[in-house]
Design a protein around this nucleic acid. Sequence first.
DNA 1: GTAGGGTTAG
Length: 446
Amino acid sequence: MLVYAIHGYSLKSGFLSHESVPTALTTVYSKMDEMESARKAFDECTHKSLASWNAMISGYTQNGLTEDAISLFREMQKSEFRPNPITITCILSACAQLGTLSLGKWVHGLVRGSDFESSIYVSTALIGMYAKCGSIEEARRLFDLMPKKNEVTWNTMISGYGLHGHGHEALNIFSEMLSSSVAPSPVTFLCVLYACSHAGLVKEGNEIFNSMIHRYGFEPTVKHYACMVDILGRAGHLQRALQFIEAMPVEPDPSVWQTLLGACKIHKDTNLARTVSEKLFELDPDDAADRNYPQAATVGQEAKKRKLAKAPGYTLIEIGETPHVFTSGDQSHPQVKAIYEKLEELEGKMREAGYQPETELALHDVEEEERELMVKFHSERLAIAFGLIVTEPGTEIRIIKNLRVCLDCHAVTKLISKITERVIVVRDANRFHHFKDGACSCGDYW
DNA sequence: GTAGGGTTAG
């Protein structure tokens, strides 16, 4: 790779003592996803500047290393350098990814009333932070206060509504954007289509997709097609989704098939799921195995091995300002006994109400009992049980999960919201679910 | 035209 040669040459020629060369190296390594090298370039930089810190924080943020971004920010606060709007923009993006509102509010507090707030970047990042940390109303309030908005500002507000399943609000903002002086981009259309898919707006999604092509002259990318497949599939039009894929003028990539497979899971169409997994296996045997789609019996063992390598799921719950993190089957929390007892108690009540565990379509190679156990102690259930124990009756419970909520946990959370008369807000890898009185705001569209 | 760092989707 060229960058290594440049790095070596810079070292030899003494360029590393230059003000900007190590910072540029930090950025390049970050973009290559080589965070150890990025950090090394930052650490070894003898003439650090504000830009060096920003480059490193931004690198962490962009690679999803939110904890590292935040801890480096804290380190920076102890240093001689003070954050500027660029720092704040990066760190707000990290807060948004992490999803913890108290941390986001803390950062907001650092800039409230300063002229940082007039930066369009900072304001946009604040909107994204509030939306992704669950406060869509606060996001909207800040949005309305902005005297000037750019394309990203509009996109952020649209996708914020999408995240919360507020499809009509997303469409309203979109049409306001169309009558503003800011033009939509292909990314804008992705945001709008995404909002349609999470609200079941099939007709609207179709119209917008067509207007994007014919009225705005944008050539749809494979991502736009995947969004359309999601809209059709999520709404249960599985055959239409399949026909749509077959008629695509660009080659469908695995993500498109993966989207349809997700829809098959939601609507429990095992036959189509099998066809689609075969298709996925043809395209990318490794990845198909990773998804553990079992119908490919030949990869069963391989699938098991690979499952171990999957990103571990965790759920975070904030009690006051203290985060508590749970993993599946977690035994490490000090209140572990009370948590498991709470789950048992809830399960009893749920069974009385006629609940049967709904194990994943995906796990055909596991014994039924083992499957039940696996879902029974998913991290979100531990977090919810803990939240129920330590908060006052009637308090809203908010949790953040790094993966998608599974079908069974979704069903269980609906029941728990009813039994305990609590509002439970779950942010998963994809969107927000507001559980209340036995129903979810996603309308089971996921 | 003047170096190195920024928000959205996936």
